[in-house]
Design a protein around this nucleic acid. Structure first.
Ligand SMILES: Nc1ncnc2c1ncn2[C@@H]1O[C@H](COP(=O)(O)OP(=O)(O)OP(=O)(O)O)[C@@H](O)[C@H]1O
Length: 713
DNA sequence: AACGCAAGTATTTTT
DNA sequence: TACTTGCGTT
C-alpha cells in the first residue's frame, strides 16, 4: 500500500499494531487523512475484514467523503469500501436499533422524533400536568431531558442535581414523556444512543453479536463525544481495537453533552493504548497558524501541543472594522469580487451600463423577493458587482457565530450578483408543507404518532379543532397498547364509538378512512407512487396552491420532495418511507452543501468543523457575538467560545479576513458594539488593517497579562 | 372552528 | 425584525 503521502508520525499511526490508538493533534495535521489510511491499511493487509470495521464520523457528509477517499485508496479491491460500516453515531445506532429494539417492546418500525417533535410532545404533557409554561417552558425540559439521556439516566435514575421544584417537575415530565414516546413508538435523538446502551447492558447476547461484528472501531472528532457515545465505544471495543483521532482544543459541542474528558483521559480509560501526536500542519500559512495559536493560548487548560508548518509565511491577515453589519457584508462582497475577478486589490464600483451579467431589474426583483427591498432603498445603494466571468467561488467561505448573521450578507450578495450557498438555517425539510407531507407519511406507517396527527389532522382544514383533537388523542392513548399492535382497520371499527360533535365526528372518520385506504396500498407500489396517490387523497395541491406565488412555491416544494423519493423507487413503499424518514431525521446541517454549485459558502462555525477553504471570512467578531453573550457567565462556556474561534481561524488555507462592526442591529434596534476580546491577542505585525481597526483593538498595551475572563469591557 | 389582528418575546451553537 | 401566542369576532 502506498504510504508515501504520509509523514513518519502518520505512518506510525496507520501501521500501528492492533489495539487502542489515540491520535491527538492540532488542526490541519492530517488526523482525518490518517484515519482514512488506517482503514485502508487494515483492509489491504487483511488485518480486518471490511465488514468488521465500524467508522464513526461527526456528520453524514464526512462519512460519505471518507468512503469516497477509501474507495480511491483501495482501487485494487473494488467494493471493499462499500462494506465498511460508516456513519454518525446516531445513524449507525438507528440501523442497529431497527433490528434489535423489539427486546425493549418498541416496534422496529419506530419513528425518530426531531427536536421539534420532541418539544411538541413535551408541551402536550406540560398542558396535561397544567404546568406554568412561562416558568417551565418545553424547551427547558427538552434540554434537561436531553442532558439526562446523554448521561444515560432513565426516568427512574434521574439525577441532575437540580433544585426544587424544577427537580420534581422534571421527574414527572420526563417519566411521562418517555411513556408517551413508547406509546407512539417513537425515539428521540438521544434515545438512539441511550437505549442502544441499555440494550447492550441488559442483553449480553446482543452485545456479543455486535462485538463480533465490529472487531475494529474508529472515531473521528473524538473530542466531541458524549458519555453515552463513550459507553457504547467502551462496550463495543471491549477496551481494545479502538482507533480515535481528535483535538481537545477543537471541542465545541459541550452544549450538546460532549465531554472533553473523554479525549483527555483516553490513556487511562484504555490502558496499554498508543498515543500518537501529529505536529506538522499542512493546511495553513505560517501567519494564520501563528494567529490561531495566540487565540487558543487564552485557554491555559488546553493540552499543550506543538504545531509547525513548512508552508510559506503567506499574506497578512486582514482585520477590518466596519460601521455596521451592512458595511461588513459590503466589505466581504467587495473583497470576493476583487479576488474572484483576478484583481488582488480593491475594485472600483462599476457603472450600471457597463455591468456584465444581470440587469439592475433582475437584481432588484431578486432583492425584493428575498427581503422586500423597496426601489428607492435599492437604488441608493452602490455595491460592487461580480463580473459574469469570474474564478470559481468554491474556495470562499464566510463563517459566523449565529445563523441570524447571514441575513445582511445575503442581502448584499444578491445585490452584488454573487452566488452563495447557506448551510443549515431554514432548511427544506423544515418547511411547513414538507413537514406536513412527512407527517402524513409517518401516520400512514403508524397511526399512533400523535405529534404527526396533531400536525395534519386539520391540514387542510377539516373542521377538527383543538378540542376535538384532544378527545381523539385521549382515545388513541387509551386504545389498546403497543404490545399487541392493532391494525388500522380494527382501530377504525372501534373509533366510530368516539364521542365528538357531529361535524368533527364525520371529519375524523373520513380522515382515518383515508389513512386506511393509503395504508392498504399493495407492496408492489413504490414510495413515489404512493406519495402521488396520497397528495390527491389529501387534496394537497388545491390546499397549497391558493393562487398566490408563495402557494405555487409551496407546491413546487412538494414536487421536489417527490424527486427526493425517487431514490426509493426500487423497493416497496413501506420500506422506502421508513428509509426516507430516517434519512431526513438524521440529516446533518452540512449535508445540504452542494459540491457542484459554484458559490460562496456561508455557515456557522459549528458547521465548519473539519472543513478547509483557501479564503475564510470570519465575521461578527464582537463582544456578545463572538464570544456570545450567553457564554459569558460560565468559564467553561467561555473556554468553548475560545475553541470555537480557534476552529474558525484554522479553517483557512491561504487568506484570512477578520471583520467586526461598530454597530449592529439586534432585535431590530441598533446597538453599539465592542471588538471581540479574542482580537487583542493577535500578532499586530502580522495584520493588515482596514478602517480604524488598529486603533480600536489595540487601545491599551496593558491587557497582555489578562485572562480571557478578565478581558471584558 | 376559522380567521385576523395585536402584543409580546426572542437568537447561540445541532445529531 | 420576525415569529409565535392569545384574544376577539364571525
Ligand atoms: N502528509 C501530508 N502531506 C501533505 N498533505 C497532507 C498530509 N497530511 C494531511 N495533509 C493535508 O492537510 C489537510 C488537513 O488534513 P485533515 O483534514 O486530515 O486534518 P485534520 O487534522 O483532520 O484537521 P482538523 O483537525 O481541522 O479536522 C488536508 O488537505 C490534507 O490533505
Amino acid at each position: 500500500m502506498d504510504l508515501s503521502s504520509l509523514n513518519d508520525r502518520q505512518k506510525q499511526a496507520v501501521t500501528a499494531p492492533l489495539g487502542s490508538v489515540l491520535v491527538l493533534a492540532g488542526p490541519g495535521s492530517g488526523k482525518t487523512k490518517t484515519l482514512t489510511h488506517r482503514i485502508a491499511y487494515l483492509i489491504e493487509k487483511r488485518l480486518v475484514h471490511p465488514e468488521h470495521i465500524l467508522a464513526l464520523t461527526f456528520t453524514n457528509k464526512a462519512a460519505s467523503e471518507m468512503r469516497q477517499r477509501l474507495n480511491a485508496l483501495l482501487a485494487r479491491l473494488p467494493g471493499a469500501a462499500e462494506n465498511v460500516t460508516m456513519g454518525t453515531f446516531h445513524s449507525v445506532c438507528a440501523k442497529i436499533m431497527r433490528k434489535e429494539i423489539t427486546v425493549l417492546g418498541y416496534g422496529n418500525d419506530f419513528v425518530i422524533f426531531d427536536t421539534d417533535d420532541q418539544q411538541k410532545a413535551i408541551k402536550e404533557i406540560s398542558e396535561e400536568l397544567q404546568l406554568d409554561t412561562k416558568r417551565f417552558p418545553a424547551s427547558l425540559f427538552s434540554a434537561l431531558i436531553s442532558r439526562a439521556k446523554n448521561l444515560l439516566q432513565l426516568p427512574a435514575e434521574l439525577n441532575l442535581g437540580l433544585e426544587s421544584p424544577l427537580r420534581e417537575r422534571l421527574a414527572e415530565v420526563y417519566s411521562r414523556y418517555q411513556d408517551s414516546l413508547y406509546k407512539q413508538n417513537a425515539l428521540d435523538f438521544d434515545d438512539l444512543l441511550m437505549l442502544m446502551v441499555k440494550i447492550f447492558q441488559n442483553f449480553p447476547k446482543i452485545l456479543a453479536k455486535y462485538q463480533k461484528r465490529f472487531t475494529y472501531v474508529l472515531v473521528d472528532e473524538y473530542q466531541d463525544t458524549n458519555p453515552a457515545q463513550y459507553a457504547l465505544l467502551k462496550m463495543l471495543s471491549e477496551h481494545r481495537n479502538l482507533f480515535v483521532v481528535g483535538d481537545d482544543a477543537q471541542s465545541i459541542y459541550g452544549f450538546r453533552g460532549s465531554d472533553i474528558r473523554n479525549i483527555l483521559s483516553f490513556e487511562n480509560d484504555f490502558p496499554e493504548s498508543l498515543v500518537i501526536k501529529l505536529e506538522q500542519n499542512y493546511r495553513s500559512t505560517r501567519t494564520i497558524l501563528e494567529a490561531a495559536q495566540k487565540v487558543i493560548g487564552l485557554n491555559p487548560e488546553q493540552k499543550p501541543k506543538t504545531l509547525w508548518t513548512e508552508n510559506a509565511e503567506g499574506e497578512k491577515i486582514t482585520l477590518a472594522e466596519t460601521e455596521d453589519e451592512r458595511a461588513e457584508a459590503e466589505f466581504v462582497a467587495k473583497k470576493i469580487v476583487a479576488l474572484a475577478s483576478g484583481k488582488s486589490d480593491e475594485v472600483e464600483y462599476v457603472p450600471e451600463e457597463q455591468m456584465d451579467g444581470y440587469s439592475i431589474l433582475d437584481r432588484f426583483l431578486k432583492a425584493r423577493k428575498m427581503y422586500g427591498a423597496s426601489l428607492n432603498s435599492f437604488r441608493s445603494r452602490r455595491v460592487p458587482q461580480l463580473p459574469k466571468k469570474h474564478d470559481s467561488l468554491k474556495e470562499f467561505c464566510i463563517l459566523y457565530r449565529t445563523h441570524a448573521q447571514s441575513r445582511a450578507l445575503e442581502e448584499v450578495f444578491i445585490e452584488s450578483s454573487i452566488p452563495y450557498q447557506i448551510v443549515g438555517g431554514l432548511k427544506f425539510y423544515e418547511r411547513r408543507e414538507i413537514k406536513d407531507m412527512l407527517a402524513y407519511l409517518r401516520l400512514v406507517l403508524n397511526f399512533r404518532d400523535l405529534v404527526s396527527l396533531k400536525r395534519v389532522i386539520n391540514e387542510p382544514p377539516r373542521g377538527i379543532g383543538d378540542k376535538s383533537y384532544q378527545v381523539i388523542r385521549e382515545f388513541i392513548l387509551k386504545y389498546g397498547n403497543r404490545d399487541k399492535e392493532v391494525p388500522l382497520k380494527d382501530f377504525r371499527a372501534d373509533f366510530s364509538e368516539i364521542k365528538l360533535q357531529p361535524r368533527a365526528w364525520q371529519a375524523a372518520q373520513d380522515f382515518f378512512a383515508m389513512l386506511e385506504t393509503i395504508t392498504e396500498t399493495p407492496a408492489k407500489f413504490s414510495l413515489p407512487e404512493l406519495m402521488k396517490v396520497m397528495v390527491v387523497k389529501i387534496g394537497m395541491e388545491k390546499f397549497l396552491r391558493d393562487g398566490s406565488k408563495q402557494g405555487d412555491a409551496r407546491w413546487e416544494n412538494v414536487e421536489e420532495l417527490f424527486t427526493v423519493a425517487e431514490k426509493f423507487r426500487n423497493m416497496p413503499w413501506r420500506e422506502g418511507a421508513q428509509q426516507l424518514l430516517e434519512e431526513v431525521a438524521l440529516l446533518s446541517e452540512i449535508d445540504s452543501k452542494d459540491e457542484k454549485k459554484d458559490a460562496v459558502i456561508m455557515m456557522t462555525l459549528h458547521s465548519a468543523k473539519g472543513l478547509e477553504f483557501d479564503n475564510v471570512f470570519f465575521v461578527g467578531l464582537e463582544e456578545g457575538i463572538m464570544p456570545h453573550s450567553r457564554s459569558l457567565l460560565e468559564p467553561n462556556e467561555l473556554s468553548e467560545e475560545v475553541r470555537l474561534a480557534y476552529v474558525g481561524l484554522t479553517r483557512a488555507r491561504k487568506r484570512l479576513f477578520l471583520v467586526y462592526a461598530r454597530h449592529r442591529r439586534i432585535f431590530g434596534n441598533f446597538q453599539s458594539t465592542q471588538p471581540s476580546r479574542f482580537l487583542k491577542v493577535l500578532p499586530r505585525e502580522k495584520l493588515q488593517f482596514f478602517g480604524s481597526a488598529d486603533k480600536t483593538v489595540y487601545r491599551s498595551d496593558e491587557e497582555g497579562e489578562l485572562t480571557v475572563e478578565e478581558m471584558d469591557y
